[in-house]
Amino acid sequence: EDTPTSDDLEQFAKQFKQRRIKLGFTQADVGLALGTLYGNVFSQTTICRFEALQLSFKNMCKLKPLLNKWLEEADSS
Rank of each mutant, 00 (worst) to 15 (best):
E1R: 10
E1K: 09
E1F: 15
D2K: 11
D2V: 07
D2T: 14
T3H: 12
T3N: 07
T3C: 13
T3E: 06
T3P: 06
T3I: 15
P4I: 15
P4Y: 09
P4Q: 14
P4M: 15
P4N: 09
T5C: 14
T5S: 12
T5Y: 05
T5V: 09
T5L: 11
T5F: 09
T5W: 05
S6H: 15
S6M: 15
S6Y: 15
S6I: 13
D7C: 15
D7E: 10
D7R: 14
D7M: 14
D7H: 05
D8R: 06
D8K: 10
D8F: 07
D8M: 11
D8Y: 04
L9N: 04
L9T: 05
L9R: 01
L9K: 02
L9F: 12
L9Q: 03
L9M: 15
L9D: 03
E10A: 13
E10K: 15
E10L: 15
E10C: 12
E10H: 15
E10Q: 15
E10G: 06
E10P: 07
Q11N: 14
Q11E: 11
Q11V: 12
F12E: 06
F12V: 04
F12Y: 12
F12P: 00
F12Q: 01
F12S: 02
A13T: 06
A13F: 01
A13Y: 01
A13M: 06
A13K: 02
A13C: 08
A13I: 09
K14D: 12
K14V: 08
K14F: 05
Q15P: 00
Q15C: 08
Q15H: 14
F16P: 01
F16E: 02
F16D: 00
F16M: 02
K17C: 04
K17F: 00
K17Y: 04
Q18R: 10
Q18C: 08
Q18D: 10
Q18L: 08
Q18M: 10
R19H: 11
R19T: 11
R19E: 09
R19C: 08
R19I: 07
R20S: 02
R20H: 00
R20W: 00
R20L: 01
R20N: 00
I21G: 03
I21P: 01
I21N: 05
I21D: 03
K22P: 00
K22M: 10
K22N: 09
K22R: 11
K22V: 05
K22F: 09
K22S: 08
L23C: 05
L23A: 07
L23P: 00
G24N: 04
G24I: 00
G24Y: 00
G24F: 00
F25R: 05
F25V: 06
F25P: 01
F25G: 00
F25K: 10
F25D: 01
F25I: 09
T26A: 04
T26V: 01
T26Y: 00
T26K: 04
Q27S: 08
Q27V: 09
Q27C: 14
Q27E: 12
Q27T: 14
Q27A: 10
Q27K: 08
A28R: 10
A28H: 09
A28I: 07
A28M: 06
A28P: 01
A28K: 15
D29M: 05
V30P: 03
V30F: 03
V30R: 00
V30L: 05
V30T: 03
G31K: 04
G31Y: 06
G31L: 02
G31H: 05
G31C: 12
L32M: 04
L32R: 11
A33D: 05
A33P: 00
A33W: 12
L34S: 00
L34Q: 00
L34H: 00
L34K: 04
L34F: 01
G35A: 12
G35F: 07
G35K: 14
T36N: 14
T36S: 14
T36F: 05
T36W: 05
L37K: 13
L37V: 11
L37W: 07
L37P: 05
L37Q: 12
Y38H: 12
Y38D: 11
Y38N: 11
Y38E: 07
Y38F: 11
Y38L: 04
G39V: 00
G39E: 06
G39A: 05
G39P: 12
G39W: 01
N40Q: 15
N40V: 10
N40S: 13
N40E: 15
V41Q: 14
V41D: 14
V41N: 13
V41L: 08
F42G: 04
F42K: 08
F42H: 08
F42Q: 15
F42W: 09
F42N: 03
S43N: 13
S43Y: 03
S43V: 02
S43E: 11
S43Q: 07
Q44W: 04
Q44P: 13
Q44R: 10
Q44S: 13
Q44I: 06
T45Q: 13
T45S: 12
T45R: 12
T45F: 09
T46D: 15
T46M: 07
T46A: 07
T46R: 04
T46Q: 10
T46L: 09
T46E: 11
I47E: 01
I47M: 03
I47V: 09
I47G: 00
I47N: 01
C48V: 09
C48K: 15
C48Y: 09
C48L: 08
R49S: 07
R49A: 09
R49Y: 03
R49N: 14
R49T: 04
R49V: 00
F50P: 01
F50Y: 04
F50T: 02
F50Q: 02
E51P: 01
E51F: 00
E51L: 00
E51D: 02
E51K: 02
E51G: 01
E51T: 00
A52Q: 14
A52W: 03
A52N: 13
A52F: 01
A52C: 08
L53Y: 13
L53P: 00
L53G: 14
L53K: 10
L53V: 12
L53N: 12
Q54P: 00
Q54C: 06
Q54A: 08
Q54K: 14
Q54M: 05
Q54S: 08
Q54D: 11
Q54G: 06
Q54L: 05
Q54E: 11
L55C: 05
L55H: 06
L55R: 03
L55V: 03
L55E: 05
S56R: 04
S56Y: 02
S56P: 14
S56W: 01
S56E: 08
S56C: 05
S56Q: 04
S56V: 00
F57S: 11
F57Q: 12
F57R: 13
F57V: 11
K58Q: 14
K58W: 06
K58R: 10
K58M: 09
K58L: 07
N59W: 10
N59I: 15
N59A: 13
N59E: 15
N59T: 11
M60K: 00
C61A: 09
K62A: 11
K62G: 07
K62N: 08
K62R: 13
K62P: 00
K62L: 12
L63R: 01
L63V: 06
L63Q: 00
L63C: 04
K64W: 07
K64S: 06
P65G: 09
P65M: 08
P65C: 14
P65E: 08
P65W: 07
P65I: 07
L66K: 09
L66V: 10
L67P: 02
L67R: 00
N68R: 12
N68V: 15
N68D: 07
N68I: 07
K69H: 07
W70M: 02
W70A: 03
W70C: 02
W70G: 01
W70F: 09
W70R: 02
W70I: 02
W70Q: 01
L71G: 04
L71C: 01
L71W: 03
L71V: 10
E72P: 02
E72R: 10
E72C: 11
E72T: 10
E73W: 10
E73V: 10
E73Y: 15
E73I: 12
E73L: 12
E73F: 11
A74D: 06
A74W: 07
A74G: 05
A74S: 07
A74P: 05
D75R: 10
D75T: 12
D75K: 10
S76H: 13
S77N: 07
S77V: 13
S77E: 12
S77Q: 06
S77G: 15
